[in-house]
């Protein structure tokens, strides 16, 4: 697990501070781990940092802890589909509500040609479904739905 670094309290607070600015999120329970400089994982199990390090140092083949949560991109945080779902009750701003037709487009991996007057990450949602983040730019919202999670629309 050498590539996963457990973040300390201050580093976690810094992430929450950014998420508050971006989406209004104020509290996340659990441990954050960073892979490289970009990818962030969240573990909400009860094993302490000490226990996790003990497992890692004992060569038990620790491959992953928790789930992929977010990615740092140009000093902003892009939440994964699961992260938007986990935090759905806390997300208060930069939300884009999709209509039924747009859900089909979005979940099939297409960018949306929509002017939002924003240049930031938006949480995409449709009613109670939270569908990850898109990046709003001048005339569109870029799509990050991974291939394995995309709807396959019949031609």
């Amino acid at each position: 697990m050498n590539y996963l670094k457990i973040l300390n309290k201050n580093e976690k607070q810094e992430i929450i501070r950014k998420l508050k600015l971006q989406f209004g999120i104020t509290d996340i329970s659990g441990t954050f781990l960073k892979s490289g400089t970009e990818r962030l994982f969240l573990f909400q199990g009860e094993y302490s940092h000490k226990k996790i390090k003990n497992i890692d140092n004992s060569r038990m083949g620790l491959e992953r802890i928790g789930i992929y949560f977010a990615k740092f991109q140009n000093n902003e945080i892009r939440l994964s589909i699961e992260a938007t779902h986990i935090l759905k009750d806390q997300i208060k701003k930069n939300i884009f509500e999709l209509n039924k037709e747009q859900v089909q487009q979005w979940m099939s991996g297409q960018e949306l040609n929509i002017q939002t007057n924003k240049k930031t990450f938006l949480v995409m949602k449709h009613k109670e479904d939270f569908l990850g983040c898109g990046k709003a730019s001048e005339h569109k919202i870029s799509n990050f739905i991974p291939k394995s999670r995309r709807l396959k629309i019949k031609p």
Partner: peptide
């Protein structure tokens, strides 16, 4: 198979799990 396992845990939003390969 670990890749499939990790992908399924992720899709289901399982946050309390450590995966080991041994």
């Amino acid at each position: 198979r670990i890749k499939i396992l990790a992908s399924n845990l992720e899709k289901c939003g399982v946050t309390n799990t450590l995966i080991t390969r041994k």
